[in-house]
């Protein structure tokens, strides 16, 4: 709360105050952005917990989600992952790395013509399944999985 007050005193403006509130845990980012996948899912320490917190406990496996990632990643700190959803009306995509300390890495919502696909680089602690989770506008979840072998881990150490 201290940080919030200081920001206000400095007169950094409304956005600064919101950012500080987010940092202080007063306002969850999901409340600010009305995100499809809620922030608690990022704090889950296992995949089942993350999916459950995201509301995707019963996601159906789908071949319409494409995961492009290397079979073997030499450096776990930088693993390029690209996911593409060919499921109609996909509004949200998330990337989950099974064996990371916090499996959920990213969740993006798409609107106004954004194509439901994204490319990013994730950290992987060890060889693990990489899962792509898609949410459609009718609230259904779909999931696809791909194993990526890691020779040097990217978390901790």
């Amino acid at each position: 709360m201290d940080a919030l007050r200081r920001t206000l005193l400095k007169g950094a403006g409304a956005t600064g105050a919101i950012a500080a509130a987010v940092a202080a845990g007063v306002l969850k980012p999901s409340q600010v952005l009305a995100a499809e996948i809620n922030r608690q899912a990022f704090e889950a320490k296992d995949v089942a917990g993350a999916l459950k917190a995201a509301g995707a406990g019963n996601a159906a496996e789908s071949k319409d989600i494409v995961i492009r990632a290397p079979d073997i990643a030499e450096n776990g700190a930088v693993v390029p992952v690209e996911i593409v959803s060919n499921i109609p009306n996909t509004i949200s995509l998330a990337v989950v790395v099974d064996k990371n300390p916090f499996p959920l890495t990213t969740a993006f919502d798409f609107a106004n013509g954004a194509v439901p696909e994204m490319a990013l680089r994730v950290k992987m602690g060890q060889t693990s399944l990489v899962e792509a989770l898609a949410k459609t506008s009718d609230g259904k979840f779909y999931i696809a999985k791909k194993e990526v072998k890691v020779t040097v881990g990217g978390c901790g150490g």
Binding site: P29, S30, L33, A35, I37, R39, F42, A77, V78, V79, V97, N100, F102, P103, L104, T105, T106, A107, F108, D109, F110, A111, N112, G113, A114, M118, A119, L120, R121, V122, K123, M124, G154, C155
Partner: peptide, 16 residues
């Protein structure tokens, strides 16, 4: 067009 949330497991100097 996009809004997203990320956790600590995104690589250093993230590229999207």
């Amino acid at each position: 067009v996009l809004q997203g949330q990320t956790g600590p497991a995104v690589s250093r100097n993230p590229v999207f």
